[in-house]
Every structure is written in structure tokens, then in C-alpha cells.
Design a protein around this nucleic acid. Sequence first.
DNA 1: CCTACCGATCGGTAGG
DNA 2: CCTACCGATCGGTAGG
Lengths: 223, 223
Amino acid sequence: MSKPSAESQQEDPPKRRKVGRPRNETRSAEYEERKRLIVEAAANVFREKGYDGGSLDDVAEALDIRKASLYYYINSKAELVGLVFETAMDGAREDIDRIVLIEDPVDRLRALVEHQIGRVISDLSHFSVFFDHIGFTKESSAKSERLRQLERSYVEAFSQTVERAIAEGVLPDVDPRYATRAIMGMTCWTYKWFDHDRHDGAALSETCLQLLLGTGQAVGRQG
Amino acid sequence: MSKPSAESQQEDPPKRRKVGRPRNETRSAEYEERKRLIVEAAANVFREKGYDGGSLDDVAEALDIRKASLYYYINSKAELVGLVFETAMDGAREDIDRIVLIEDPVDRLRALVEHQIGRVISDLSHFSVFFDHIGFTKESSAKSERLRQLERSYVEAFSQTVERAIAEGVLPDVDPRYATRAIMGMTCWTYKWFDHDRHDGAALSETCLQLLLGTGQAVGRQG
DNA sequence: CCTACCGATCGGTAGG
DNA sequence: CCTACCGATCGGTAGG
């Protein structure tokens, strides 16, 4: 707010004139791509060996460089796993913003289940690290504030979608808190067992939806 | 101080003659109890810090002894986590053997869900280690052949119960393989978020059952 | 992006 | 059940 006339503001050395796009644009593109590759390699290492079990030497070896070189791109192992986490979260968050806008209750629930399962199976490595080694609901020092916020808003959006489905009558009249957890478990658990060579994501989604919606149910219920 | 020149017996004083049950019965009881405490402490450590992140020093410290002393009871860290795993599995396996015998389809499914959730929440530490740090479906060198067998037969019994529920019409006519995974996810996921101070296992079980059975559902389905 | 190296910590052992 | 200690490995730094 206040910065009209500053006399002694000599913090960061400016070093550059005001131009449209100031800094090292060329290097930045390569830099970001390298960084992306490092995060990708880290996700695979952490998925296979866990966060503590997987070393930065493992990550470096996967890229055929030395460990010390990683520190040109990251500041710590915790930051690296945070980036893995963000990668998994960012895409998922975009999905759910679109899902909330769907009007038909059944279509919306279907979209929720399909996208959750789809995200998880298309990114098994990232979600594995996410769920098992950082902690979804647990506290973790590896989580930055930004990450915590991403996660909170995601769960909230998920929860509201479930709540609406109950209010609209496409799901039974149950406790929405537990229903949210149950449906999350049903869909997220996928990362524990899914194998692209042996399983089919669409068929799994369909099964989950039929279990939730009761479609095809033949007997056993009465008013 | 000085041993009065006893030529023959210089080992530990046996102190008892041959009786019906030959060896160290008294010590064995203490020994087994100590071992149980070690496994319990290990479960808590591994739950909080993970298998790789939690050290044997942590386990020893929780019991107020030195790390080296643990090796009187266990041979390796892998064996220790295997014992944690067995503890979680043994009880669960007993449950499911009884559940299979239930005749009423709805009662059987209800028992399956209730016992799975009940086991998990009554033993969050053990299941946490089990699911995240040894791997439920993954391969793991920490698993002994006995463990692998325990696990396989458990999943199989679980799977058959789901399959029967589908055949009997209490669940929709879906792929039983995926339905098994879905219901396992729905129930097992509990270890990720359940807090005894804030949540109620019975209410959660009821929610899961209603979601699966469709009880209370009002609209959205038509022949 | 490298070589070289650090202090800390780990699982495990020796020997009592 | 202990003290003392090992070789290996870790995350991270120095300095180029």
C-alpha cells in the first residue's frame, strides 16, 4: 500500500532496467524442463522406495548425473517431494473445478468418480508418493503452506460434490462426511493395486458407480 | 566371589531336573511378553515415521532400552516389521473365516464391512505399516513366505464374499474383481484419516453399507 | 553440472 | 540386557 516516495529503500539490488520481460528467458526454458525431468524421476524413485528409502543419489542416477547437480534445481529433498506432490495435485484440482459445474446429479457423480480414478491411474507414481509418503490427511513438515491449501480446497470441493449428490437423492441419505471418505477410499485406493497391463480404468469406474448408484440391483430391498 | 573349585558344572546353573516340559518355560513367558512389547513399539514408530524413517534406535528408546538389546529378540529390522505385519493379519484372518459362514447375504456383507473397518480402526498403527510400508499387493522383501500366504488367503476370502453378494443380488451385477477392490478401498482407506476422538466406526460402517446396498435411496433409478 | 568431502545416522556386530 | 564400535549410506556443502 505505502510506497509513494521512498528514500532509503535499498533492499534487493535492482540490477536491471524496466523492460517487458526482464530475465534470462532462454535459459529458463531449459531450466524448467530439466527441473520437470528431475521431479518426474523423483516421483518414480519415491514410488518404488518411499520417501525415506529413496535417495537423491537414486534420483540423480536415474538422470545420469551426480547428486550435487540436483541442488542447482532444488534446495532440499523435502522441496523436491513437495514438487512431486504439487504435480499430482495441480491437475486434479483443475478437474474438480469443472466437475462442480455439471448440472445433472448423476453425470456429476459419474464425472467425480471417473476423474478421480483416471487421475490416480494416469499418475500412479505421483499419487503413491502423495498418499503414502507425505500424508494426505496427516501433518507433514514436507508440506508447504501452498500445498496444504491445495489439498484442503481439493478435499472440500470433493466433499461438496458428494454432499450435493446426497441432497439430490442420487446417493442414499447418509452422513456426508463419511460418504466422502468412503468414496475417496473407493477411488483413491486404486493406486495400491492398479496395473495398466492387467486392469481397465473405465471398467473400474463403472463398477464403482454401479455400486454407489445401485444400478442393476435385483433383489433385497423393500420400502 | 570365588567359585569353590567345582570341576564339572560351569555353565549356567540349570537349577531343575528333566521334567515334562523340558526348557526354560518361565523365561519363555517373559521373553514372549517382551517381544510383544517390542512389536507394539515398532508398530507405533513405523506408523509415525514409516519403515525407513523409523529407526531401531527409536523403537529401543520407546522401551527405554538400547538398540543392541533388541537383537536378543529379533534378527533384523525386516523381521521386526514382518512381526508387525503378522499381528495385523492374524486377527483379521480369524474374522473372515467366521464371516464366510454367515448365511444371510445382507448380514454377511454387513459383517464383512463392519469387521474390516473395525479391525483397521482398532489397530491403526499396525495397518498403517501394513498398507504403506510393506505393501499390500506389492512385492516386498520384508515379506516372509508365511506372510505372503496369510495375505493371499485373506484377500481371496474377502473376494469370495463379495462375489457371493453379487451372485445373490445384494450387490449390483458388476465385475467382482473390481467390486472387491472398491469395497476394500472403501473400508481400508479408513486408516488414512480415522481419529478415535472425532469419528465413529459404527456410523462409518453404516454409511458404507447404505452406499453399497442403496438403502434409503429415493430417486434416480428406473427399470 | 562436476569432484571431493562433511557430519549425522543407520542397521548390525563383538563381547561381555 | 549393556557399552563400544563397524562400514555403509544419507542429505547437503565447498568450490570450481
